[in-house]
Amino acid sequence: MRMLTRQKEKKREKEKGRRERERERMEWIRESVASVRSIQFRQLLTQAVSLGLIVTSALIIWKGLMCFTGSESPVVVVLSGSMEPGFKRGDILFLHMSKDPIRAGEIVVFNVDGREIPIVHRVIKVHEREDTGKVDVLTKGDNNYGDDIVLYADGQRWLHRHHIMGRAVGFLPYVGWVTIIMTEKPIIKYILIGALGLLVITSKD
């Protein structure tokens, strides 16, 4: 009988200890879950902020360049071979739009009414009015046989100041291929954007 009670007591003790430990463990899990939750929330917030920072700083740089160069698109990618061998497809041009008069020999980027994509060609003729300062410009691609009248809108014989977005002042080879590939194969663009976004969100720094 005595042995039995002792055994029982021991058993009860064991049971008690186990329950205690279990409760502790539960407590710990609950706490850690709560802490993880709060950390994740904060991390998510910081990551959202850092993502926003990247996007806005890119925007600031672009807009700053616009102010600095005076051109509505300070950097253009060469899309055709009409200026070869000077500029190949995929090269990047830095534009500058100053008040200086346009002169023959300069490489200008211009928009033609009814055409979405701007063209990068060289000026070969300039006629400038003395009184009004109005200017008539004719362009030609270095690699093209004839001048650009065929590229202009119907009946248009000259380019004017408002067609011209800027003149090319600097040159960087090959870099533009990134944008050419992304515009021609949109899937790559989405994959790249997705991967970058994922990287930003998952990075711990």
């Binding site: 000077g86 023959a104 070969i124 300039v126 400038e128 009015r129 003395e130 009184d131 270095d142």
Partner: peptide
Amino acid sequence: KQIFVFVAAEYETPKNGFNQISLWDRI
């Protein structure tokens, strides 16, 4: 990389204060 060279005629007329016409060019 290359030099683009051209010869231009530059003149003034009563109508235009500045005229510039490329006559010949070469890469």
